[in-house]
Amino acid sequence: MNAALTIAKREIRTYFNSPIAYIVLTVFLLLAGYLFFGSLFIERQADLRSYFNLMPLLLAFIVPAMAMRLIAEEKGSGSLEMLITMPVPDWQVIVGKFLAGMALLAVMVGLTLCYAATVMAVGPLDKGPAIGGYLGVLLMGGTYMAIGVMASTFTRNQIVAFIIAFAISFALYLFYRLLPFTPESLRPVLSYLSVESHFEAISKGVIDSRDIIYYLSVMVVSLVIATVSLESRKWK
């Protein structure tokens, strides 16, 4: 696991040494701030619901942008060859990259904790939904991140990686929106696959192991596919 942490450390530094982290954080905070303060000042509602409500869609867009460079950039520049000929198992490379993305996500989401503080300053904060919401954002973001890492192993082109990750993430988001139009028999399946239905439950403050298992299993499956994809260079 040491190598994964070494890789993660390096990636985090790269994020913050280049404009990427700052651009992503700025865009995210602008949009999230608009949602939160919009409802605070215009609708005079001091809660986090409008902020959390849009997270499934917003993160489906932002997280692929954070993840796209993780492997694709190294494939393009050739440094991947240097990295994976070091005595480190391929899965640790994937996990290291994923952890770096998660660290950036945590910083991003952490900065929005000031919204919770704002709510507390002007009224009572509903603790359950707030804790559940932040946890849900991290789990859902992590799911998108794992998908993003996976897409990033497919190509040397970062834009292509972004589009693949966004398409998959958006599809997972869209399932929930499609529920009213789908036949009765498909609904439970679609609802289970949707990121949003699980997020909705968690952000109400209901922390159900089934929802957590859903997120964790999508993450694990994506990272396993990412590892296999990295190893596919060795297929005969």
Partner: peptide, 11 residues
């Protein structure tokens, strides 16, 4: 191992 073109991390 030193690969061709020495692809090191530039940053």
């Amino acid at each position: 191992y030193l690969p061709e073109d020495t692809p090191l991390y530039k940053d």
